[in-house]
């Protein structure tokens, strides 16, 4: 009976499986194949070389700094977001009451506007004679400190862009902490800090980890913030991939960088997911 179920399930799933294989796996296979193609050629599937990877790992190649910037900025961004989003997520669950949905909408709303447009908006905000500088000047407190075109503003842009992706999984995680347990812990004499550390945080952890995973994966791939706000004061690895595919026209090198990035992000994701009980996160306790 069980065997029959499996095979009919497979049968019904086959259109989707074929679709996934072609639409999802084929481009990925092509990218991987390109990473082993002769440098600066289009000889995909007809040549095999490790030259692209050895070029990346060549000691004279400074592309490692791009990996360091991307991974470093993503790590700091994720930690900052966890700290910033936690109180908001707590508020959405416990404090904002009937305003909670309004607050949620306010956080979702910017997602309807293109990321680039929002980032250009921030440039207007921080630029010389822009919103901040103009207001401070008119109050006689100017000029505003120069913040644009720096790694710091790149980080700010990333924190701003990825906030919703941390906030909502975290809100979901916190909403799954049974109030009874918190109350019981308090009744048994647990202080606020202890209840938070022993009850709330562990129970909300799956949501927090999913939020951190999502934001870090997205943030490693960030490029617009470094370009628009940061004035390319740092070159992220995705920007390097872009250069390889455009101005350099070295698709195999771009593919090799992309494969390395996928491996790093994939490894990170697997490491986190292996420590996570997805069933619990999805509420099927």
């Amino acid at each position: 009976m069980a065997r029959l179920q499996v095979s009919s399930g497979l049968r019904y799933a086959s259109p989707v499986l074929i679709f996934l294989l072609l639409g999802f796996l084929a481009p990925l296979v092509t990218v991987v194949a390109y990473s082993f193609a002769s440098p600066k050629s289009f000889e995909v599937f007809t040549s095999f070389t490790l030259a692209n990877f050895s070029a990346v790992f060549d000691t004279t190649n400074s592309v490692w700094t791009s990996f360091v910037w991307s991974l470093g900025l993503a790590a700091v961004c994720t930690v900052l977001l966890a700290i910033i989003a936690y109180p908001i997520a707590y508020g959405l669950n416990h404090a904002f009451g009937r305003y909670a949905s309004l607050v949620s909408v306010l956080f979702v709303f910017p997602l309807f506007v293109s990321e680039n447009v929002r980032l250009y908006g921030w440039v207007q905000f921080f630029i010389k004679n822009g919103v901040v500088d103009g207001v401070l000047n008119s109050l006689g407190w100017g000029p505003a400190p120069e913040v644009l075109y720096s790694p710091g503003i790149t980080l700010f842009g990333m924190v701003y862009t990825y906030l919703p992706f941390m906030l909502f999984p975290m809100t979901l995680g916190l909403s799954m902490v049974p109030q009874d347990l918190v109350d019981a812990a308090a009744d048994l004499g647990g202080g606020r800090l202890m209840v938070w550390r022993e009850i709330e945080l562990p129970l909300a952890m799956p949501g927090i980890l999913i939020g951190m995973l999502l934001t870090s994966v997205l943030a490693v791939g960030a490029v617009a913030e470094a370009k628009i706000l940061g004035g390319q004061s740092v070159i992220t690895v995705v920007h390097d991939i872009e250069i390889a595919f455009t101005y350099a026209q070295d698709w195999p090198l771009g593919a090799a960088l992309a494969v390395l990035l996928v491996l790093i992000i994939g490894g990170l994701t697997l490491a986190v997911l292996s420590r996570l009980d997805l069933d619990r996160v999805l509420g099927r306790r």
């Binding site: 250009y120 440039v123 207007q124 630029i127 010389k128 004679n129 822009g130 644009l148 075109y149 370009k227 628009i228 004035g231 390319q232 004061s233």
Partner: peptide, 18 residues
């Protein structure tokens, strides 16, 4: 260089005096 950017951002920075 103070910035490396696209045409629109550079023109904007010129107009703003950056």
């Amino acid at each position: 260089a103070k910035m490396v950017s696209d045409v629109a951002s550079l023109n904007q920075a010129m107009v703003a005096g950056e």
